[in-house]
Design a protein around this nucleic acid. Structure first.
Lengths: 144, 144
DNA sequence: CGAATCCCGATTTGTTCTATCGAAATTTCC
DNA sequence: GGAAATTTCGATAGAACAAATCGGGATTCG
């Protein structure tokens, strides 16, 4: 399961990606639209900023914007930052690999084989889904 | 990531599935072979028992055995019991569905679509992997 | 300067994870 | 019938983590 933080991050980023204006968007504005507690969102955005997923402008008229094009921000990027590796075990993680402490032989470990397949399957989905592909193309203002 | 408990459970069950004798296997024997702290394993096996994944015999000469054929115990069964749902969000869980508290419209939620695809991909792997398919067919006693 | 806004460290509160302890219940064996 | 072996169960402890908040520092605009 994703943490609450992870779900908040995804929601906030979708809000940001739909806000196509040139001006950055204030934290409180994002918080309101994404329904995320303001102070908590502050932390989350800082995290995402460290990964380059968002950029910020300080001072008056400041705020946040996406760090790159929506199509270049995958769900995997976001989830890895907020919730850690996609893998079910460190020994099959692409981004945070480390050998299990009590592993006898990684090459023949039956568990590892399955968890590796699971990771690959999950990653295939999350790395091919991005903020652009999932957002509604354009929200109609009224009933068509 | 799986919890330590989840990894322990998988290891213990693989040990049990390779122990093809008719007699049940004692907790301490399983613990030694699977390298799991004895008392912790006790709790884990009780959990697995509630799900019918293992059965037990009490008293002298007692111990644990698989609750059904190894091929009928999937990784998904085990992980769901020890670590909870495979899904990344309750709203896409097959076994523990519930609507997100602040969800506006589940049918059009962009996040949900992706998480649902991720769950399906993960479940496909973990539900088709079982204790029999992954265990070495027969461990050679010595170098062949 | 002063107001608006992001930045950052600390703290709080509650929950989960990992592991252990001690004793009760059950069964076998003599 | 009693002793020994074994599972069962409730309680506990400490560490780590999650969710959220607080208060003030740093930066920029007007």
């Amino acid at each position: 399961m994703l943490s609450q933080k992870g779900r908040y991050a995804l929601r906030a980023l979708l809000v940001l990606s739909e806000h196509s204006g040139e001006r950055p968007m204030m934290i409180s504005e994002i918080a309101a639209q994404a329904k995320v507690p303001r102070k908590f969102l502050e932390q989350i955005l800082l995290d995402l900023k460290r990964r380059g997923i968002v950029r910020s402008v300080r001072g008056r008229q400041g705020g946040y914007m996406l760090g790159r094009a929506p199509k270049d921000i995958t769900f995997a990027d976001v989830i890895r930052q907020t919730d850690g590796p996609l893998a079910l075990s460190p020994c099959v993680s692409a981004t945070a690999y480390h050998r299990c402490a009590d592993c006898v032989d990684e090459a023949t470990c039956a568990i590892r084989k399955v968890l590796l397949a699971a990771r690959d399957a999950t990653a295939a989905v999350l790395e091919s889904s991005n903020l652009a592909s999932t957002a509604p193309l354009r929200r109609p203002r009224r009933a068509a």
